[in-house]
Computed example of a mutant assay.
Amino acid sequence: MILPGMAKDDVVLVKADGDRIEGLKAVVSMRRIVTFQTENEIEPKDVMIKECADGGQEAYLVLDPVFNRTQDGIPEHYQITVRKIDVPE
């Protein structure tokens, strides 16, 4: 179970139309990203860019964003199936 306090990765959401939403916190793994910041809709074909501690970046293509409502004490959140891609220019 992932809780909000565990979301420590800095992520930028790049919408399919090019809009950038910065300052998101998430838990990033190779095939899934979880974020409790749900004020912005996350859709297939969006890209999430993780800012790495060494100054580098990793990019992930959103394949299947699943929005989960508050349940059993866990706040609403997205569980997003992703695929790692090259960082867009």
Rank of each mutant, 00 (worst) to 15 (best):
45 K>S: 13
45 K>Y: 07
45 K>I: 01
45 K>M: 12
46 D>Y: 04
47 V>G: 05
47 V>T: 15
48 M>K: 05
49 I>E: 07
49 I>L: 02
49 I>M: 06
49 I>R: 02
50 K>V: 04
50 K>P: 00
50 K>D: 01
50 K>I: 01
50 K>N: 03
51 E>S: 13
52 C>T: 14
52 C>G: 01
53 A>C: 00
54 D>N: 15
54 D>I: 03
55 G>P: 08
55 G>N: 08
55 G>A: 08
55 G>K: 08
55 G>R: 07
56 G>K: 03
56 G>E: 10
56 G>W: 00
56 G>S: 15
57 Q>E: 15
58 E>V: 07
58 E>Y: 03
58 E>G: 02
59 A>H: 09
60 Y>E: 06
60 Y>A: 02
60 Y>P: 02
60 Y>L: 03
61 L>K: 15
61 L>C: 02
61 L>I: 01
62 V>G: 07
62 V>I: 11
63 L>H: 02
63 L>D: 11
64 D>R: 12
64 D>T: 11
64 D>F: 01
65 P>V: 08
67 F>E: 09
67 F>I: 02
67 F>R: 14
67 F>G: 00
68 N>D: 09
69 R>N: 13
69 R>A: 14
69 R>Q: 14
70 T>V: 06
70 T>A: 15
70 T>E: 15
71 Q>M: 12
71 Q>N: 12
71 Q>C: 03
72 D>Y: 06
72 D>K: 13
73 G>L: 07
73 G>Y: 04
74 I>N: 08
74 I>G: 01
74 I>H: 07
74 I>Y: 12
75 P>S: 07
76 E>Q: 14
76 E>D: 15
76 E>I: 00
